[in-house]
Design a protein around this nucleic acid. Structure first.
Length: 842
DNA sequence: ATACGGACTTGGCAAGACGGTG
DNA sequence: CACCGTCTTGCCAAGTCCGTAT
């Protein structure tokens, strides 16, 4: 056993190994873990092909938008400093430190250059990868990896033996192509193909499935296997990757760095890691009890803050709406609600009967049964809408000075609420502003859209604060908080009940840059890294259960497979008064269409009513199991009738301490980034490296189905780009004509408006032509990228799924200034990851 | 086993800030 | 410097998942 390959850790699907890189193998032990896989893969395959992107299809989202238009002008320049805060201070340094490290010397500094919007740059690609694939086969040999290095990974232990197993095959189908897919685009619109290819896994080649497992472990896994890991590893591995890294030089890379991090981070972590058995309690659990020693459950010792700030009271505008053509008098309260509706006149919500119905129901209560207004259809909110538009316009027209003054005033008012002091450290508060009243805008076909979200008052709010901290003064005179608590086992500073759904809460938490959040973020990634050590065994185990006689087991196995391979969410049960969306455990029969011989077509609305459409090839046993789960059921019945998220998670927990469904998403996202970035990534300069990164980021976004709606001006923007390109092409033609003439000693032609041009020599003209061509190429690439990313949102995965240490380490290795990848708030949020060793691998 | 309460993470969107450009 | 497109932020909705009560 033991041997396992490492390779396996990677997401099955994604991985592709095709390229086996050169072998690095020998030399240094590759980092044990991950994937570099030297191994010769065998097959490879490529299958892939599928353009991921394709999948995307957008769909439904709500959109509301209002059109506003906006052009805002910008005028002002913000003074900026304001906020900053402390953190900032730190930050800076970071980056700086950061940069340098790598390489030695050299001046790199230059980096900065660029600036271009990333996005633009990108271009390339795409496709390629994507695919991924599948393939699978890999593996094989195992070599023992683990050399010494520490830690990590060792997979050895892995129970798995399995490794091989499965993967394989299937495929076929595509196979052939390697990458080529090409086309993609098109599809996009239509269907999608698959994002991740999944199925593939097995490639044919391999022998098929099962490989002998050696051990079998049947048991599902051994959970215990600890791998070590820990973060710390960072350090070490050095060797390994070396190769690429450039300069590696020094080994010391990092050392010097100090940590920027905020205080805490470090500390805690340690704890966990190692012992896995013990397990930590991570975030969720509020272990509350148990404080002994480490203070487990306890989240803070001292907490001081100023409570929350309320939106200003409503100021009646007196603009009268019309009812059956006649102006109506409304009380301020009635007018306030009418205005909420009027302001949304130009949104999609107006086309939704449910929205209007809910609004009318709530507004009518305020109007009273006998009010003149007896029905919504006879109401004309235009006057109010127009008044609002003009107010907006007025605001826009204000001078820079005025805006600045207004802003400062607001700042002054809010400043005290922006900060909290946690265990002696000043930290930013996330959402210290209480949500203003308004109409509920649910996403998708939410049954409660349009309902009035009433104003929250101090008496609705519960404050949580340190025992000896002063109780925040209630900002509204004459009123008082609902309750004041001193619970140090939770991290919220305040909460109130959600007026739309009185059994839910709205919390006020610290900002993402706080160490409390950073810590838990780090723990999240450590847990995902831990999964790396168990993944093989888990895959082996569920593969075996695809054919279990026990239906529940079979369902758990298939569900886990889908979560692993497709990065689906868990899928908790929902109430009827929520939008009808699903996740893995709540998939309906109609959401998964089997298409022989082994393709599954997924089509459902997931979180936020974002459509998930994908066609994937799966292993035959999975395909058969799905068919069987569907038999005898109606389209709207649960596909996994014997399952729910708590059963699934309980099972996962047996496989690895703390394992839950969402960990797979984090794991697959981060391992994919790590894998792609470590693969050659050859950018020659910063700009190209950034493109490489974006490409990897995009891949992850596709896997996670992070979509965005196409911007209203997208097509106009594309048109403009095309025009510019055409213009440049004309320029080239002209230059070429001039060049030909210049070579013959003739002067250039006049410009179109008849003016003479400078007489350049052939060399100069050629240079110009070359430059222009380069410019065109860049624009073409930008265009492609833009089209490519029009429906893909990269930000979400960057914020929530990609271990920042992967990014930071890669930046250090490639001399890319971290700020080219992380903006200011991301730098603050990920302060805990800045001092990672350049050789860090997820 | 389930239901439910509760706490925290994840997500898309639109307004605002920013930065390049003609 | 007015305009525009992109990037950043705020907002708040919508998930996940744990613990406890039923």
């Amino acid at each position: 056993m033991s041997y396992s390959s490492d390779d396996d850790d990677k997401p099955l699907v994604f991985r592709r190994n095709s390229k086996p890189e050169k072998a690095k193998s020998s030399s240094h032990p590759p980092k044990p873990s991950p994937k570099p896989s030297p191994k010769p893969s065998n097959d490879s395959d490529s299958e892939d092909d599928k353009p991921l992107s394709s999948k995307i299809s957008t769909v439904s989202k709500v959109n509301t938008n209002n059109a506003k238009n906006g052009s805002h002008k910008s005028v002002s320049t913000p003074p900026k400093p304001q906020v900053k805060d402390e953190d900032s201070d730190d930050e800076k340094p970071l980056s700086s430190k950061f940069i340098s490290k790598p390489n030695v010397g050299s001046a790199n500094k230059a980096h900065h250059e660029d600036d271009k919007p990333l996005s633009s740059k990108v271009s390339t690609a795409s496709k390629v990868n994507t695919n991924n694939a599948k393939n699978g086969s890999h593996k094989s040999v195992s070599t023992a990896k683990k050399p010494l290095v520490k830690d990590e990974d060792s997979d050895d232990e892995k129970p798995l033996s399995s490794k091989l197993i499965s993967k394989p095959n299937a495929g076929s189908a595509n196979k052939a192509h390697q990458n080529g897919s090409v086309s993609r685009e098109n599809q996009s619109k239509n269907i999608a193909v698959n994002k991740r290819p999944l199925g593939e896994e097995r490639s044919s080649g391999q022998s098929s499935v099962k490989k002998p497992k050696l051990s079998d472990s049947s048991t599902p896994v051994n959970r215990l296997k600890p791998k070590t890991n820990s973060d710390d590893d960072d350090d070490l591995p050095i060797a390994q990757r070396i190769k690429n890294q450039a300069p590696s030089s020094s080994g010391k890379p990092s050392s010097s760095k100090q940590k920027v991090v905020k205080k805490n981070s470090s500390s805690l972590n340690k704890t966990n890691k190692k012992s896995k058995k013990v397990v930590k309690n991570s975030k969720y659990s509020k272990p509350s009890r148990v404080p002994p020693g480490s203070g487990e459950g306890q989240k803070w010792t001292s907490l001081v803050h100023n409570g929350v700030i309320f939106p200003p009271a409503y100021k009646p505008h007196g603009v009268k709406m019309l009812y059956r053509g006649k102006p109506v008098d409304l009380t301020p309260e009635q007018e306030e609600v009418a205005t909420m509706f009027a302001v949304m006149l130009d949104t999609e919500y107006m086309t939704k009967p449910k929205f209007k119905e809910n609004f009318w129901e709530d507004w009518r209560k305020i109007l009273g049964k006998n009010h003149v207004i007896q029905n919504l259809d006879d109401c004309d909110f235009k006057p109010i809408y127009e008044w609002h538009q003009s107010e907006k316009e007025k605001k826009k027209q204000m001078s820079t000075e005025e805006k600045k003054a207004l802003k400062e005033e607001k700042m002054k008012l809010e400043e005290k609420y922006m900060w909290a002091v946690v265990d002696g450290v000043k930290e930013k508060v996330g959402n210290f502003r209480v949500e203003p009243p308004g109409l509920f805008r649910g996403r998708g076909e939410h049954p409660k859209m349009g309902k009035l979200k009433k104003r929250i008052r101090p008496s609705d709010i519960t404050i949580n604060i340190g025992k000896d901290a002063p109780i925040p003064e209630c900002p509204i005179p004459g009123e008082s908080w609902k309750e004041v608590r001193h619970d140090n086992t939770v991290t919220w500073l305040a909460y109130w009940l959600d007026p739309i759904n009185m059994k839910e809460f709205k919390y006020v938490f610290l900002a993402a840059s706080s160490s409390l959040k950073g810590q838990s973020d780090k723990e999240k990634y450590e847990k995902a890294r831990m999964l790396k050590g168990y993944i093989q065994g888990i895959r082996t185990a569920y593969t075996k259960d695809f054919v279990s006689k026990d239906v529940t087991k079979r369902q758990i196995a298939v569900a886990t497979y889908l979560i692993d391979k497709l990065a689906l969410r868990a899928g908790n049960e929902k109430d009827d008064d929520e939008a009808d969306t699903v996740g893995c455990c709540t998939l309906k029969v109609e959401n998964v269409e089997p298409s022989p011989p082994n393709i599954l077509k997924f089509d459902f609305l997931g979180k936020d009513s974002i459509r998930y459409q994908n066609e994937v090839e799966v292993e035959l046993p999975v395909f058969k199991a799905i068919q069987q789960f569907r038999t005898g059921k109606q389209g709207g019945d649960d596909l996994f009738d014997k399952l729910d998220t708590s059963k699934l998670n309980a099972h996962l927990k047996e496989l690895m301490p703390g394992l839950t469904a969402k960990v797979f998403r984090t794991y697959n996202a981060s391992i994919t980034l790590d894998d792609m970035l470590s693969r050659e990534t050859k950018g020659r300069d910063v700009a190209e490296n950034v493109v490489v990164y974006q490409h990897a980021n995009k891949e992850v976004a596709i896997i996670c189905n992070h979509q965005r709606s196409v911007s209203k001006s997208h097509s106009a923007q594309m048109t403009r780009l095309n025009e510019k390109i055409d213009e440049l092409k004309d320029v080239i033609k002209e230059l070429e004509t001039d060049l030909a003439r210049a070579k013959k000693g003739k002067p250039p032609l006049k410009t179109s408006d008849g003016k003479p041009k400078r007489n350049l020599n052939p060399e100069a003209l050629e240079k110009k032509i070359t430059q222009t061509k380069a410019k065109i190429e860049k624009m073409e690439r930008d265009k492609e990228t833009k089209e490519d990313l029009k429906t893909v949102a990269l930000g979400t995965s960057k914020i929530n799924y990609l271990d920042p240490r992967i990014t930071v380490a890669w930046c250090k290795r490639h001399e890319v200034p971290i700020e080219k990848i992380f903006n200011k708030s991301l730098l603050a949020k990920f302060a805990w990851s800045m001092d990672v060793d350049p050789s860090f691998r997820f």
